[in-house]
Amino acid sequence: MKRIIRTARDYAILLAIMTTISATSCRTQDSSEIELTQQTEPTKLSAEIRLARVTRAVQTVRVELVEIVNSVLGTNYSTIADEMIFSSDLLADESDMINIFNKIRIQFGLNISVEDREIIITFGDLVDYVTEHSVSIPSLPSNPNIQIFEKIQGIISEQMDIPISLICVHSNLRNDFGMDSLDFIEFIMELEREFGIEIPDEYAAKIITVEDCWAYIESRN
């Protein structure tokens, strides 16, 4: 049974996260992936983590930028090809581009200079620029603390009634485990209680995978 959210902070987290969840996405778990608990070579683990982080970062930024473009242009693209030119393919005029850049400043905290705006011609240019300059997901060390991962597994398993064996480093909390907004808030609160930390709302809103949680907790220890 879900706990009743009692504090003002919990309500604030809910509102912040619900406005971001619809704009976030990540690859789901592939059945061919080797479970983290079965990996014994630090180099293999490190490579898997780097691949997951890069994939997640690019996909998340891409989805959020599609939403921004749709909101400014009044379109309904589910995806936008990298080679699409803003002026000719997307029919974005100078005013539209200013609005797009303003929304990026608000959503990503990224102020794109006038000089840099001139080199952003295609949607792919925009994705590359925002990914390079705004994604700040903590990196896991080459030999991360496996006990932290196991505790995260335990929290997810108990909360969502999912076998430990199905909870891997690349697992997507929403897509793979079916977490809704309230489940996710309860999960964040359990992490804070378990590890004695506070996860800022702006970071909580960007947590997509198990690895995101693990990386943040590692960065606080």
Results as ranks from 00 to 15, higher is better:
T37F: 12
Q38V: 07
Q39K: 14
T43A: 06
K44L: 10
L45Q: 11
A47Y: 09
R50S: 10
R53C: 05
A57K: 10
Q59R: 14
R62W: 07
L65S: 02
L65W: 02
E67A: 11
V69D: 06
S71C: 02
G74I: 00
N76C: 03
N76L: 03
S78A: 04
I80T: 07
A81C: 04
D82W: 02
E83I: 08
F86K: 07
L90M: 04
L91Y: 14
S95I: 15
S95K: 11
M97G: 04
M97F: 12
I98F: 13
I100R: 04
K103Y: 08
R105I: 02
Q107W: 10
N111D: 14
S113T: 13
V114N: 13
I119W: 05
T122L: 03
T122A: 03
D125C: 11
D125E: 04
V127I: 13
Y129A: 01
Y129M: 01
T131E: 05
E132D: 08
V135S: 05
P138V: 07
Q147T: 12
E150W: 05
G154Q: 13
I156G: 02
S157L: 10
Q159C: 00
M160C: 01
D161C: 02
P163Q: 05
P163M: 04
I164R: 13
R174F: 06
R174H: 08
N175Q: 11
